[in-house]
Amino acid sequence: NQASVVANQLIPINTALTLVMMRSEVVTPVGIPAEDIPRLVSMQVSRAVPLGTTLMPDMVKGYA
């Protein structure tokens, strides 16, 4: 089972991601792979992401 990136806190719209905002977790459906966490740092979210939400490619500007 592949771990995905999950929000560790509420991430407001247009916030630049930092390591403390993200954790890896095995979830369904699968989201952005956990190994991409270093690449996500400083990228902005395109919408508010609630705590515990799996990050999907369309939620991060410039990821897809």
Rank of each mutant, 00 (worst) to 15 (best):
P38C: 06
V27T: 08
V30W: 10
M43K: 10
A34Q: 06
P12S: 10
N8L: 06
A3H: 14
Q2K: 05
I37K: 06
L19Q: 06
V26H: 07
S24I: 12
A48W: 08
R23V: 04
N8P: 01
E35T: 11
S24G: 09
M59C: 05
G52P: 02
A64W: 04
T18D: 05
Q9L: 10
S42A: 13
R23Y: 05
P38H: 13
E35H: 12
I13K: 09
E35R: 05
R23D: 04
R39D: 05
L40Q: 00
R23E: 03
Q44I: 12
L55V: 12
P57D: 09
G52Q: 05
P50R: 08
R23T: 07
L40M: 09
M21R: 03
V20T: 12
E35V: 10
E25M: 08
T28R: 03
D36K: 09
S24N: 10
G52K: 04
M21V: 03
V30L: 15
L51E: 12
V5G: 01
V5A: 13
A48S: 13
L17K: 00
L17H: 00
N1R: 03
A64I: 12
M43H: 08
V41L: 11
K61A: 12
V45K: 00
T54L: 05
M56L: 14
V41W: 04
A34P: 07
Q2H: 11
T18E: 09
R23C: 04
E25Y: 09
A7K: 00
A16S: 10
R47H: 13
A3L: 14
I13H: 12
M59S: 08
V49G: 01
G31P: 01
T15N: 04
N1I: 15
V27S: 05
R39C: 13
V45T: 12
N14C: 09
L10H: 09
S46R: 12
V6Y: 02
V6E: 02
Q44G: 05
L40V: 05
Y63N: 03
P29N: 06
K61R: 12
L10Y: 08
M22I: 10
G62I: 03
R47I: 15
G31F: 02
I32C: 03
T15H: 05
